[in-house]
Design a protein around this nucleic acid. Structure first.
Lengths: 134, 134
DNA sequence: CTGTATCCCGAAAGATACTG
DNA sequence: CAGTATCTTTCGGGATACAG
């Protein structure tokens, strides 16, 4: 590993860390991006309010920010229906669906190693840090 | 998707979002965790100062926090050599190496879709948001 | 050399109220 | 219904100085 780019990561930025010019941690979005992805993965478009429910009534401000960021990155589409009352529907794009793949991989890893990590933490916490001397 | 856990995510927490009890964005660590992983992926143990170089002279405080978090999760081992001056070496554990797999998947995705995302952003920014009416 | 101890800052997230 | 407008809080991250 040679050179790393240390510029800060905006919330809606993603990165290819293998590319030496952008060798930063990957971040596809803010705290809620992955969860929104999950909410939409079945392909059915959802309305704004409809999305708030599974997100534990996330505040409209934060949901808007999340959706705008995802829209700008091309992960979701936003469709405005000219009705009264207004109806707006969000759906995953092909690019958004493609994100489910790496997400699933990460989830699988987390699921598989959860116990291992819990163990590591427990011994670290009780023993006050595992020190190996040599 | 039914219930989501909305508790805030500490910096050193990871999650299995398929598990309804922990349906939060995945985060294996802070800003530098993935980069440290990359620095150690060749298997050679590195010293504290040695790690700072490829991380663009990250401040000791932040590096310490990152390494402690990774150590607690069982991603890296910390070996203290009883010498003078002191020598401490960090190396990936088996668990840490296993993290390279999902990381690579994410990197591959980022690399593959970078142009697509750049395009989406450009049209979003120039057109002031893509509005589709129906 | 390998860290701590403080102080500080900005971005992101949340609370609350209001609007077309 | 689908957001905006403000305000406030939280916290990760950085700068600097110092210690064992």
């Amino acid at each position: 590993m040679t050179e790393l780019d240390t510029r800060p990561l905006p919330r809606d930025l993603f990165h290819d860390p293998d590319c030496s010019e952008h060798a930063q941690p990957i971040r596809v979005g803010g705290k809620w991006t992955a969860v929104v992805l999950r909410c939409l993965e079945d392909g059915r478009p959802r309305r704004f309010t409809e999305l708030r429910v599974p997100l534990h009534w996330i505040t409209p401000k934060v949901l808007t920010e999340t959706l705008r960021s995802m829209e700008r990155n091309g992960f979701v589409s936003r469709t405005v229906h000219d009705e009264n009352p207004p109806r707006v529907e969000y759906a995953l794009t092909a690019l958004g669906r493609s994100l489910l793949d790496p997400l699933d991989t990460a989830c699988a890893w987390a699921r598989a190693h959860t116990p291992e990590i819990a163990d590591a933490r427990e011994s670290y916490d009780t023993d006050g840090g595992v020190v190996s001397r040599a």
